[in-house]
Design a protein around this nucleic acid. Structure first.
Length: 506
RNA sequence: CGGGGUGUAGCGUAGCCCGGUAUCGCGUCUGCUUUGGGAGCAGAAGGUCGUAGGUUCGAAUCCUGCCACCCCGACCA
């Protein structure tokens, strides 16, 4: 699938062995390899749960920091609600409760005690049964709307614009690091409004926030769209989403923004008195992105040499590798590097000087490539004499020698260039693999090759179900900027007003 | 949750069929020589063979349960 792009198939596993892992041969094995080798995350002793390692968490923190800024800039405040939700609250909004029921962890007891029959072991104390079971939140609408009821009396209390950074638990049958884990980290925004229009505007605004974050920061092009009824969030009137294409041509839902109508207000009896003195139910939205974005990031840019990070998310943007023979050489180089490092850091660039003296430069090059550091500088005695430095970019693997005089400017320009190039490359990839299809034959061909199929659909849920059953593909979204175009459904031949995006999905 | 596979030192593995407490490489540690794309030599450390039982004089090896991971389904962000 990618044979023309990358020839290297031999990779270093934990810097200790060459292993054959290439995107084209086994995409999921390649993905696991990147997560492991770049030290992003690992499996834990708990089934389906992951340990996010420091380097992976540093990337997540950068995502959080940027998103948080955007949430604040659009008027939201952070707050925190409990991990546990009483079952009676959880079941209040029926559709939502049903949607999540199959994957809820439930707390039934609050105490352990020594096992009388097995010394040193503990058992659940049967005397300590909770009078009401607690659901570990798969999402927080229930506990939040139960709380909002006490906060809202009049239109003057609205809107409420709150976000929370939290962990949630969804007991998944089949898990994959970052993409689908039983516990994951996310943010969930929950807003309350006096009018439908305002809530809808909020829903769309947050979709825009997600889209610009994905494109400007993650360098990941996304399609903004609305979900069909089949794919809609349980409890929502309308679900908006951003969909991205991974390098195997499969779709990944990268973020969702829900217009919840008055469903939760009705379920939790949240009313407000309007200017006119009349009471009405509050309008709601919720929106979220999760550590799944880490998976999206990996699968959008990385290659057979390892992780590729857009500069705006790279914990280390520039790594400097000294090339030296003696300690005196290293001291001389280090003195120069300190100056360079200071100048770069002054411009807000994060710099790592890799002084380890037990490893050869080539080894370090590979290791930092594996970790996706966007720019590498290499400097040796020859450079000191010539006032030059070698600069290499991770995205294209090009390198060149340049004068040290203008280095800071060159690095800044290159970081920008890499950020843009990654976006453009991903956009080109998506464009090449997005095809207009009018028949089942074309449809299957596009999906089997990996890609998005733009096809007419008759708007019926049952048609969508049949397509899913036969082709394992779903409607990812109906693009917001869709062109109206009269046609016939490729599956049923029924009339259709527009094309929708079909794909196999994560 | 169904089908298939795997689990031996930090990583990758040999041994398993035909029971006799473990092979090799990489990494790690020490020393010397090295360093412009994954260094060399010498020495050393490191393993309750996923886990709990069973069979046996004796189990990495045979049997059973459990756990975890991978691949394919169903479900899902």
């Amino acid at each position: 699938m990618f044979q023309n792009t990358y020839q290297h198939q031999f990779l270093f596993v934990n810097m200790s062995e060459f292993k054959k892992v290439s995107r084209s041969e086994n995409y999921s094995e390649w993905y696991n390899y990147i997560v492991d080798a770049a030290e992003l995350a690992q499996h834990s002793a708990v089934k389906g749960c992951m340990v996010i390692k420091p380097y992976g968490y540093a990337i997540w923190e950068k995502m959080q920091a940027d998103l948080d800024k955007r949430f604040k800039a659009t008027g939201h405040s952070n707050a925190y609600f409990p991990l546990f939700i009483p079952k009676s609250l959880f079941e209040a909004e029926e559709k939502n409760a049903e949607g999540f029921a199959k994957e809820c962890a439930v707390v039934t007891h609050y105490r352990l005690k020594a096992d009388p029959n097995n010394k040193g072991k503990l058992i659940v104390d049967p005397e300590a049964k909770l009078t009401e079971e607690l659901v570990v939140r798969p999402t927080s609408e229930a506990i939040i709307w139960n709380t909002y009821r006490g906060w809202i009396q009049s239109y003057r209390d609205l809107p409420i614009l709150i976000n929370q950074w939290a962990n949630v638990v969804r007991w998944e049958m089949r898990t994959r690091l970052f993409l689908r884990t039983a516990e994951f980290l996310w943010q969930e925004g929950h807003t309350a409004h006096a009018t439908k229009d305002e809530a809808l505007a909020e829903t769309k605004q947050m979709l825009e926030v997600y889209a610009s974050f994905a494109e400007d920061i993650m360098a990941m092009p996304v399609i903004k769209g609305v979900k069909t009824a089949n794919e809609r969030f349980a409890g929502a009137d309308e679900t908006f989403c951003i969909e991205a294409m991974m390098q195997d041509g499969k779709a990944l839902q990268a973020g969702t923004s829900h217009f919840l109508g008055q469903n939760f207000a009705k379920a939790f009896d949240v009313k407000f008195t309007g200017k006119d003195g009349k009471q009405d139910f509050v309008w709601a939205t919720s929106w979220g992105v999760s550590t799944r974005l880490m998976g999206a990031l990996i699968m959008t840019h990385s290659d057979d040499e390892g992780l590729v990070l857009p500069p705006k998310l790279a914990p280390i943007q520039v790594v400097i590798v000294p090339i030296f023979r003696s300690e005196e050489d290293l001291a001389a180089i280090a003195a120069k590097v300190e100056v360079i490092k200071f100048q770069l850091e002054e411009k807000g660039i994060s710099v790592k000087f890799d002084q380890r003296d037990t490893l050869k430069p080539g080894f370090k090059f590979s290791e930092w490539e594996l970790k996706g550091v966007p720019v590498r500088l290499a400097i040796g005695m020859r450079d000191l004499q010539n006032n030059t430095i070698e600069i290499a970019r991770r995205d294209t693997k090009e390198k060149k020698s340049l004068s040290m005089d203008n280095l800071t400017h060159e690095v800044l320009t290159l970081l920008d260039d890499i950020q843009n190039n990654l976006y453009q490359r991903a956009l080109n990839f998506r464009s090449e693999r997005t095809k207009v299809v009018n028949s089942k034959e074309e449809f299957v061909k596009v999906l089997d090759e990996g890609g998005f199929a733009l096809a007419h659909w008759d708007g019926l849920s049952e048609t969508e179900d049949k397509i899913k059953e036969e082709f394992k593909a779903t409607i990812r979204c109906i693009p917001l900027d869709n062109i109206r175009e009269v046609g016939v459904c490729f599956f049923t031949g029924n009339p259709s007003q527009e094309r929708v995006v079909f794909a196999r999905a994560y």
